[in-house]
Design a protein around this nucleic acid. Sequence first.
DNA 1: GTAGTATGTTACAGGTTTATGACATCTATA
DNA 2: TATAGATGTCATAAACCTGTAACATACTAC
Lengths: 230, 230
Amino acid sequence: MAKITILVVEDEIAIRGMLTIILEQAGFLPLSAGEVDAAQKMLSDNLPDLIVLDWMLPGISGVEWARRLKKDPSYREIPIILLTARGEEEDKVRGLEIGADDYLTKPFSPKELVARIRAVLRRSGKLFGPSQLILGDLILDTEQHRLSIGEHQLDVSPTEFRLMQFFMTHPDKVFNRTQLLDQVWGRSVYIEERTVDVHVRRLRKILAEYGREDLVQTVRGFGYRFSLLN
Amino acid sequence: MAKITILVVEDEIAIRGMLTIILEQAGFLPLSAGEVDAAQKMLSDNLPDLIVLDWMLPGISGVEWARRLKKDPSYREIPIILLTARGEEEDKVRGLEIGADDYLTKPFSPKELVARIRAVLRRSGKLFGPSQLILGDLILDTEQHRLSIGEHQLDVSPTEFRLMQFFMTHPDKVFNRTQLLDQVWGRSVYIEERTVDVHVRRLRKILAEYGREDLVQTVRGFGYRFSLLN
DNA sequence: GTAGTATGTTACAGGTTTATGACATCTATA
DNA sequence: TATAGATGTCATAAACCTGTAACATACTAC
């Protein structure tokens, strides 16, 4: 299988070099550019699987570029991770509808960067695992975009599907609402914590049709856990 | 079966040689020319099944020639793959109505070239796969360009046929609209994503005559899926 | 048991995505 | 050239999703 390509757009040479090395070591194929113009050209050459983009850039800002990309049908699908300076900008990233899929505040650890990249890729389905997740008689097929219990198709909405996908890839582990929001909805949206409850409720309702509502368990005071055990 | 003939028009000798070798190894029969005049002569001798054409050529440019060919009834049917330099031209290929069936940005990998050639040939029906695709009681005959359910002929338009062909060769998999456009309409046309909906609609309408409209399923938020299962 | 907190449940408004029909344009062919 | 068919786009309708608020219920600590 071909390597995952990641385009890094960052003006400071030192950081760019560092990013490149981190990404290489993580098994990705890094491309890099120092400003938007160059990046744009690389884009048309061959689409990267993900873009790591500095918030502040000379010329067109990263934010502005991100916004444009998200409007362009040919590029809309490419996930973007924004690199922001510490502090205030964080709120902006969350608040504004920029279209970034995640963001990272400098300074960050290599480990964190790679983890976020993986998470985003997984969310957008570019990270190949087996396309089928099988847990007991539960089957989640990302390629077909289908969720089933035994022979029965479950009719789930996009968000429910992602939630289920996350749960099934992280069974037997408790997550609080914030973690679920970050992982399933993406870090750059701001949503009420209680909304998670509602989605869990919806998922349970669907699972209940086959008597499996207890797959998603409440851990009072913490959050939720997905588990085949009871 | 006779070998597929591919005419390469490229002025740089090194690249031309490389292309020839790649094509030979892929099992095609390559012809080559260094400029349009020579190519034009070869054309009248015997029609190739496909033309690989450099964007920039001395004398008449590749683009210009492509345009002419697409106007000429005797040559219009020959698929053309344009070789473009890196960068901006990509937009032009998509934007302008040049008539190329696909394009490739240099540098490209042999693998990619061959893959694109196959894709284009398949789309234009020149690549023989099994001439009959049978899925359940659905029969798609690529030679006769016929689609039937059991004994009944379905009356489908060319685009509907290609769409169905793509679906039947890739069952049980979700495709988004961009993927469908790229695969069924070709990479070098720019068409509204929503147009896919309309064609799906038309296909369903035809299938509905035999109660099979659910073969093409909507996956909300993603795209469409063809599946015999429900 | 009670107050206080956490979670379950429901309804709903607003937003987004898809379905559908109509239409203008284009092509091939009579 | 006239005609039928095909195709892409648009406007509108319909279906569906989603986040939130409000109220109900369950649990915990005292």
